[in-house]
Amino acid sequence: MGTFITTLAEYLWVLCICSLLLSLIWPASKSARVTILILALSGLAQDKIAPLLMDISETSPELARLIWYPSWVICQTLTLGVIWFAHRKFVWAVEQITQFICLSLMMHSFLQVLRFTDRVVLGTDVLGGIYKYGIPAINIAAILAICLWAVSGAFRYRKELEEC
């Protein structure tokens, strides 16, 4: 189950972009579309940042350990900030899927800080397993919710068209 979670996590952004494309065929709200787009871009950016941090860990493992968790917390904070700013700027009502995505980003940050405290601050190193599978599980939950939202929206739209 653990291997399945980590393997699936690598293909999540493809699913996210596919769902976004699917949402273009039915009149989805801008709030949801833009939030999913921001999430996908943030995920791709994080995939680019990860190898850079890995390279640092080869030369200076101590420094890499110190900046690994804060980097992801900052990424999630920036993502949430951009989502909040877009909603404030264009006065969009916050959709349910947007609320779920923001909750997943928040949980992501919280888990990163928890692991940072466990490994770097306290040096106890007991949350390794929770971190290893917790982060991909949060991502999977968010992407599955996005897929369900896109598919159910498309079916609802098709039904409405048939009724007309």
Partner: peptide, 15 residues
């Protein structure tokens, strides 16, 4: 790290 977490909590709560 903790400032970033508080900031993300702030964005989340406001949203």
């Amino acid at each position: 790290t903790f400032s970033a977490l508080l900031l993300s909590l702030h964005f989340y709560m406001r949203l």
